[in-house]
Design a protein around this nucleic acid. Structure first.
Lengths: 154, 154
DNA sequence: ATAGAACTGTTCAAAAATGAACTATTAATG
DNA sequence: CATTAATAGTTCATTTTTGAACAGTTCTAT
């Protein structure tokens, strides 16, 4: 298609830069999750559910890419703590419908508004970005993620 | 500084976007690492070491933010497989000096040039970005990471 | 010098995350 | 229909990662 190595540093640069960012964000995620007695996957589930209403466990798996067993365990815990509601889907004795309980919504709000949460810190970190910059960042992330996810299938 | 919540969606957007990207990249990392009988931390160490020459284990810890025990185990394995050289630092019976062996350098090259490695895929994913876009992405990552890392100290 | 504090790296036990085998249900095929 | 294949979710064993206690070394302040 074209020369791959005309910018030989790019892949290493992006990987190192991403790795550092990942470490920084995940450190905060772990701390906040731990403060609320959540595992990291559980936190991830809450993030994902925060916009969705009712969603099937299968669909949640497609969204989050968590292994089935990880999901099952994490959901168990969330249900046990009353953050998530799990009901069999209507006319189907196999699939499970999931939705955030009132407590679940409240938990997310609490975390978001907590002054030392990832959310708050990220908001601050990103505060100096212009609307264009911010959107460009999100777009590039999505572009890369979509590309990599595609690659898995082929 | 100014109103934090004028863009209430930002933190959630960035977190979801980042989470998705993280999943996509880490899935590839795990696969490549596994193919070469490496753990994820070991892969991370190689990434970090690829630019450095001789570096102290303590310094490596500061760079990678891996827990001491994780580092110790991961390094053990790398030394055992001949990818890393570990020698006591001159005139200091406590600290350890680390450097990539010839085999270690070779391994990194192999991985980088493999057509299905994260490196290659990332390079492709990022190929449509202009120089400015790419640099902006890296800069924003660094900015966010630096901000979050600072927060830890305070 | 010397006692105590601080620091680097290892070890070992515990916690977190995952893969693989399994159960129960639904869909597909002859 | 009945039999086989495919699917959703759970369970259990294993792997991976991590925290905490530890051993040995260096630094600090008397």
């Amino acid at each position: 298609m074209y020369e791959c190595n005309n910018q030989p540093g790019r892949s290493m640069d992006i990987l190192q830069s991403f790795w550092r960012l990942k470490k920084a964000i995940m450190a905060q995620v772990k701390q906040i999750a731990h403060n609320h007695e959540l595992s990291v996957p559980q936190f991830g589930i809450l993030i994902t559910m925060s916009h969705k209403g009712k969603i099937t466990q299968k669909t949640l798996q497609e969204r989050t890419h968590f292994p089935k067993s990880t999901l099952s365990h994490a959901i168990d815990g969330l249900v046990l703590n009353g953050y998530l509601m799990r009901t069999p889907v209507e006319g189907n004795r196999r699939e499970m419908d999931l939705s955030l309980s009132e407590a679940g919504h409240q938990l997310i709000k609490d975390i978001q508004s907590q002054p030392d949460s990832v959310h708050t810190r990220l908001t601050h970190a990103v505060n100096s970005f212009s609307e264009e910059q911010f959107n460009a960042l999100i777009d590039m992330h999505q572009h890369i993620a979509a590309y990599l996810e595609d690659g898995d299938i082929q």
